[in-house]
Computed example of a mutant assay.
Amino acid sequence: MRKEAFEGNILRLLRNEIQYELQSASTFKSATKFGSFVVDGRAGERWITLKKRHADEDIKLEGTMFDGAVPAPTPTKDGGVINSDEMQMHITVIVTISKGEGDGVLQITCSAWPDCVEIKRLFIRANENIIAEPYSGPQFTELDDELQESLYDYLEERGINDELAAFLHQYMKQKDKTEYVRWMERVKAFIERK
């Protein structure tokens, strides 16, 4: 009897939380496109994939759900910046650009902040599926300033920009809620199983 009461309490709490989340959820529908990118939300996973064709290139972006946070910068009256108590969420984005069979792929690891994309590293892989760690070059910030700016322009031309960062943050907020509800429903179904 005690086990049934305990499980009944868990089920009641799960039902209440699921109902609350569904009622408080916005009417935002999970996007299937962003600009010329096709979006795959990968239900039940922590990643999403965006793909598109640009001239003779296949471009694939893989983004995590929120995987970190830092204090948000707040401008001061004297033009400086301090860190506030609010947190700024982080998304890791891996950009893979290929130009056909056998040419290798360019991989660029980026941070997507709420209002910008920041390049962290870039390197060439012989094949997108090779697991071995290639030499990834220096930290991006160690490159010549003009080269850094040119690489940002390269991504901008391919639609990997501040608007994409804002889209990813909006999308991931919704995905986080959706995955949370899916997780609670799976826990509930497991406990209900006899």
Rank of each mutant, 00 (worst) to 15 (best):
S111I: 04
R42P: 05
G63K: 07
V95T: 14
E146P: 00
I131N: 05
A55T: 02
G63L: 12
Q148Y: 08
D78L: 05
V105M: 01
K51H: 04
T49F: 05
I82E: 12
N127G: 00
L50S: 08
E128W: 11
I91T: 11
S150D: 11
Q107K: 06
M65K: 11
G137E: 07
E45L: 11
G41D: 02
I108D: 03
E142T: 05
K51S: 08
V81Y: 13
E86W: 10
G80L: 14
I94C: 12
S150R: 11
G100T: 09
A132V: 01
E86T: 11
L143P: 04
G41M: 03
I91Y: 08
P75Y: 12
A132E: 05
F140L: 08
E149Q: 12
I97N: 04
F123L: 02
L147F: 15
D103R: 15
N83Y: 15
S84M: 06
A112S: 12
I48P: 01
E45P: 00
P71T: 15
D115K: 07
R46K: 11
I48C: 07
D40E: 11
K52E: 11
C116Q: 08
G68K: 14
V70R: 15
T49Q: 14
D40L: 04
G80R: 09
L143N: 02
I108F: 06
M89H: 13
I94M: 15
V105I: 15
F66V: 12
G100F: 15
S150M: 13
I59C: 02
P73W: 10
S136L: 00
Y152L: 09
V105H: 06
F123T: 00
F66I: 06
E57R: 15
P134Y: 02
I91Q: 14
S98V: 11
R125F: 01
F123M: 03
D103I: 07
I130G: 00
D85R: 13
I59E: 07
D58W: 09
R125H: 03
D56A: 13
V95D: 01
Y152S: 05
A72L: 14
N129W: 01
L61P: 03
K52Q: 15
F140R: 03
P75D: 14
K77H: 08
A55P: 00
I94K: 09
I94H: 14
T64I: 14
I97Q: 04
V93G: 08
P138C: 07
N129R: 02
H54C: 06
P138S: 13
I97T: 10
G137Q: 01
D67K: 09
I91L: 12
A126D: 11
I124S: 00
L50H: 03
N127T: 00
I48V: 13
A69I: 13
Y152H: 10
I131V: 06
D145P: 01
V105D: 08
G80V: 07
I108K: 02
G68Y: 12
M89C: 06
A69P: 05
I82W: 09
F66H: 10
V117L: 06
S98L: 08
T141F: 12
C116L: 07
D115G: 05
E62W: 09
E62T: 15
E118I: 06
